[in-house]
Amino acid sequence: MEKELAVLIAKLQGIAQTGKTYAKDPYDLERYDELKQITGQLAKLLYPTIPDDRLTVYLSADDGYATPKVDIRAVIFDQQDRLLLVQEKSDARWALPGGWADIGYSPMEIAEKETFEEAGIQVTGDRLIAVRDKAKHDYPPALIYTYKLFISCLFVEGELTSGLETSDVRFFSKTDVQKLALSEERNTYADIEMLFEDHFSPHKERINCD
Rank of each mutant, 00 (worst) to 15 (best):
T21A: 13
A61V: 03
E112M: 10
T49P: 00
V75Q: 10
H203F: 14
G40H: 13
I76Q: 05
E193I: 09
E34C: 04
F150L: 14
L164N: 10
T188K: 02
Q87H: 04
S173P: 02
D62M: 12
N187K: 04
V169T: 15
R82A: 04
Q41A: 11
I144Y: 03
C153Y: 03
K148F: 01
Q87V: 00
R93H: 07
D33V: 04
A111I: 12
T18M: 02
L128A: 08
M194G: 04
G98D: 02
L182I: 11
L85P: 02
A92I: 03
P107E: 12
L8P: 01
G64C: 09
G125N: 06
T188G: 03
K174W: 10
I207K: 09
D33F: 07
E2C: 01
A66E: 04
D126E: 15
D126L: 12
R82Q: 14
H199S: 02
P140E: 10
D25Y: 06
S60Q: 06
R206G: 00
M194T: 14
Y145W: 12
I110P: 02
A6P: 03
E185Q: 14
S201Y: 05
A119I: 07
E197N: 11
F150A: 04
K113M: 15
S162Y: 14
T124D: 00
G99S: 08
L59V: 04
Y145I: 10
G98T: 07
D25N: 14
A135S: 15
V131R: 15
A23E: 06
R127T: 15
Q80L: 05
T175D: 11
L5K: 10
C209F: 11
I103R: 06
V156G: 00
K20R: 14
L83M: 13
K36M: 12
Y105L: 14
G163H: 05
N187D: 04
D33Q: 14
D133P: 02
D78R: 07
L83I: 15
L195V: 05
Y145T: 09
R186Q: 09
Q41I: 08
